[in-house]
Design a protein around this nucleic acid. Structure first.
Length: 469
RNA sequence: GCCCCCAUCGUCUAGUGGCCUAGGACACCACCCUUUCAAGGUGGCGGCACGGGUUCGAAUCCCGUUGGGGGUGCCA
């Protein structure tokens, strides 16, 4: 077992794993790798009302997809917070025995009423000196000491909190179960965590937890609070409002490498003039001290641009391989039986520079696997409105039927002759042919497309188009 | 309300007192290339929130203002 630093990622299984969590996990993972430490995954499942077991597997799968996998020697877990309930309660009772915590029988409503009456928000310490023992419905509250709590944060620096502004928070619920603040600290102690790197939303929890670490007689870990990810309204990313599920991006054909690279550039940047860098370089260069202090906008457009870069950087063979899931997806517009791997392989290189996400691929090649192309009406109208369009289609159909060798170059040469006869530009004349054959006005280069489609289909579609005019 | 954090192009960032007439990337615009669309190439637009200090010198340090954000649960 490694003696290096112990980082941890502690998500709660309350929904789809989201990009903000992924970024935090990646930060921890990069640090773990660089420093020869350990990455502990702990599922914080103490909120019985909200956590769902199925989300746990989703977290594990998404982490694995991003390269954080439990097969790696520096990965430890997953642990479950609920498994440590006994130790958490025991720690709480120790605090009670030492007078560092006390029981209170006020209900949440009563606490609120008193706060309202006094004009001061939060719990007022009503039961501090009442000497209540444990009992059903009674919560255990931490007795916040007087003074100041000074935290040292690797990204924020020194952050001071006046303890007078911190209420006596709950350690154990009325039903005896441990709450987050306590459970989190006890687990971190059990797992010998040395570095707590988490999102900025936890910064206000830090003085409370630091007091707990002290009260429990342990050496506090090193804190680091990284900025949150926000939407275009500059609000923290929310599962309800925003598109945040890692799994969804994966399904749409965002590559893991692109996602990882993009996420790492939110709040941080590698040295030099390019942000597209290898994971190894990220591991080598990433430092918490260099992390920005302000929230970062999760820009899907830039994520997509990164993804396009990664797609283009792949070999054609890799691109073909990575396209298989989307080409075999049930949402594809052609009947599964009609898919022809050889045809896709023949045209793959030409689609590779034309897609940003893998989900864009099917619409670029669907004409190859459909009996008849799905003609886009607007494109059709526009491409055939000139008088010459019919002649071009007729002449092209004839050429296609009669030309000797069925090849892109041959077709191009023949078509250029037609174009010249009409004293037009290729950019113009190819439009009706393209729409007739592929159904769209944009797509991979025309003659290569025809070559892959084949002579019979091409001629058939041209004839059908002429009949349609 | 109270506590805390933050502030460089629209966005993500480089910048840690002189190398900054502030660099890169995404987006946008133009041109080139070109069989559509992309890709690629070239160029352009565009920023240190404001006000005071400190200093020979400030995007960089200090204070204030303004503006954002987070927290304020018997959620995590």
């Amino acid at each position: 077992m490694s003696n290096g630093p112990r980082y941890r990622f502690a998500p709660s299984p309350t929904g789809f794993f989201h990009v903000g969590g992924a970024r935090t996990a990646l930060y921890n993972w990069a640090l773990t790798l660089r420093e020869g430490g350990t990455f502990v995954l702990r599922i914080e499942d103490t909120d019985e009302s909200r956590n769902q077991p199925q989300w746990t597997q989703g977290i594990i799968d998404a982490l694995a997809w991003l390269g954080i996998n439990n097969g790696h020697p520096q990965f430890e877990g997953p642990y479950f917070q609920s498994d440590n309930a006994a130790e958490q309660v025991e720690a709480a009772m120790r605090l009670y025995a030492q007078g560092k915590a006390y029981f209170c029988d006020l209900t949440p409503d009563q606490v609120q009423e008193r706060a309202k009456a006094s004009g001061r928000p939060g719990y007022d310490g009503f039961s501090r000196e009442r000497g209540l023992g444990p009992g059903p419905g009674r919560v255990l509250r931490f007795r916040v000491p007087e003074g100041e709590t000074v935290t040292h944060d690797l990204v924020r620096g020194v952050v001071r909190f006046d303890n007078a502004t911190i209420e006596d928070f709950v350690l154990l619920r009325g039903n005896g179960s441990p709450m987050f603040l306590l459970a989190n600290v006890v687990d971190d102690q059990i797992m010998r965590i040395t570095h707590v790197v988490r999102a900025e939303e936890h910064l206000p929890n830090t003085p409370k937890q630091q007091m707990l670490w002290h009260a429990l007689g342990a050496v506090v870990p090193t804190w680091a609070h990284v900025p949150v990810l926000v939407n275009e309204q500059r609000k923290k990313l929310s599962k309800r409002r925003d598109k945040v599920a890692v799994e969804q991006y994966r399904q749409e054909g965002i590559l893991a490498d692109a996602m990882v690279n993009y996420l790492m550039t939110l709040g941080w940047a590698p040295h030099g003039d390019t942000e597209i860098v290898s994971w190894q370089r990220i591991v080598d260069e990433f430092r918490l001290q260099d992390v920005n202090h302000s929230p970062a906008f999760f820009d899907i457009q830039k994520l997509t641009a990164f993804n396009g870069e990664y797609i283009r950087a792949m070999s054609v063979a890799d691109f073909i391989a990575v396209c298989q899931p989307v080409l075999a997806s049930p949402s594809v517009p052609w009947p599964a039986a009609k898919y022809d791997a050889a045809k896709f392989a023949a045209i793959a290189e030409l689609v590779q520079t034309r897609v940003q996400v893998l989900a864009d691929v099917p619409s670029m090649v669907d004409f190859l696997f459909l009996d008849q192309p799905a003609i886009d009406d607007a494109s059709w109208m526009k491409a055939t409105k000139e008088a010459w369009a019919r002649d071009v289609l007729v002449e092209m159909a004839a050429v296609c039927e009669s030309c000797s060798e069925w090849s892109a170059v041959n077709l191009k040469v023949a078509f250029e002759a037609i174009t010249e006869r009409h004293e037009l530009k290729l950019g113009k004349t190819q439009a009706p042919v393209r729409v007739a054959v592929t159904g769209r006005s944009v797509g991979p280069p025309l003659f290569e497309s025809l070559q892959v489609l084949g002579r019979d289909s091409t001629v058939g579609r041209l004839r059908a188009a002429i009949a349609r005019l």
